[in-house]
Design a protein around this nucleic acid. Sequence first.
DNA 1: GCAACGCCTTGACTCATGTCAAAATCAGCG
DNA 2: CGCTGATTTTGACATGAGTCAAGGCGTTGC
Lengths: 238, 238
Amino acid sequence: MTPVRPARPDVVAALRACRLWRAATDTAIERLAASATVEQAARGTALASEGEVADRFAVVVAGKARVYHLQADGRIITFETVESGEPLAAVASLAGARYPANIDAATDATIAWLSRDALFTLIAEEPDVARSVIADLAGRVVNLTAVVQTLALDVPARVARYLFQRSLAVGEATPEGLRVSLGMTKTELAHSLGTVPETLSRAFARLKGDGVLDVRGPDVIVHDVGALARLGSGYAEE
Amino acid sequence: MTPVRPARPDVVAALRACRLWRAATDTAIERLAASATVEQAARGTALASEGEVADRFAVVVAGKARVYHLQADGRIITFETVESGEPLAAVASLAGARYPANIDAATDATIAWLSRDALFTLIAEEPDVARSVIADLAGRVVNLTAVVQTLALDVPARVARYLFQRSLAVGEATPEGLRVSLGMTKTELAHSLGTVPETLSRAFARLKGDGVLDVRGPDVIVHDVGALARLGSGYAEE
DNA sequence: GCAACGCCTTGACTCATGTCAAAATCAGCG
DNA sequence: CGCTGATTTTGACATGAGTCAAGGCGTTGC
């Protein structure tokens, strides 16, 4: 590794965008970028496997990566989908643990690998970075807590919760009602909700039967946002 | 609040034992202890409720606190039981969020409440503390990831996993086999595994039928530790 | 226009788990 | 010794959800 090789501009931009070290100086980012190992991964390539020692972590430069747990029976739970400018496997690395989940490229992707020590050095040199790392980690714990709670709901409720959040984020008013794109295929959505396509399909059918929404291919038309909120909060319906 | 009132020795000791600021100086700990508000809570007292703004966090000085999520149908998922010297609700507080779970006193307990700013001040003054806070948070994320994976297993597997870990921790060799105390009542164990007493009872009956263990009131005699490990890893059996 | 493929949907079935109710076990305690 | 209350266990039952298999629908390519 040439120590002073000029860092790729896309890598620098992705690192600059990363919330872990929002407070870091540009110089530090440049140095970090220069130490990165860039990997070009085709869709489906494995990036890390459960159980490996987490001596490095990554930032997604382009494309998307998927963090998931593969069960013995082949079922998949997707923990998160990581996009450009977001950190990957940083937690396990900071904890000095092994990767608790698998990672693969959900699309063709460019990944910048960084060593754990590089981050520790950055923290030591720029104390403000510690604050943003802490905020990021704390936010993750809060999210994971929400995941645990969501997994305890039945599937229609999980769907409702997802759609409610998505309505707020990308809902578009139309004459028919609020149009919300699912943002992924239904099979992918099923996995990210911890279920299988068949069950998701039935959940949609039920919500449709209740008049809450209509399905239009990759979008849904929400008729009753309040019902989604109610169903997704875990309060029993009927 | 008298600013320079001498801190209670038990409070100082609990804070000193807290892993969040292992690296902090004794002076800083004293200062933190002096700023604490001490609460004496009887068993069952609510300490914090889901949804409240997390502007403070706590350290358990004596007794135990239980962090749990109460579902609409009354089912309980226990996230963790926090004992003396351990931080409580620190995560939500660091994230600047609302409490994602409820907390109550599992036994009579003494709790030292600290303001969020007190911790931020400590971090700013003693940068090494940042490192231990980061390590703690990262460890939590890893644990929660494990919880999510465990919840995806069926109940006998969760029981096996719990017993396997417990065997390693408190197992005692006897002529009959490895004696392991459950460490809590079966009803409590059921809740901490995310299920109900009836189902737990059936899981024990099944493990007993398979010759893996025998139940002796609040203890179990494990005959086949390997089987526990196998069942708890999520690999299908039979 | 037709065939092939992927994605989605539907139906029939099985199984694990929660619920309700009742019986059983156990631990104090008079 | 026997009562009483809490905990635990067992049985019967309902239900949510996964599996397997078949069929529909839309897209792509020849």
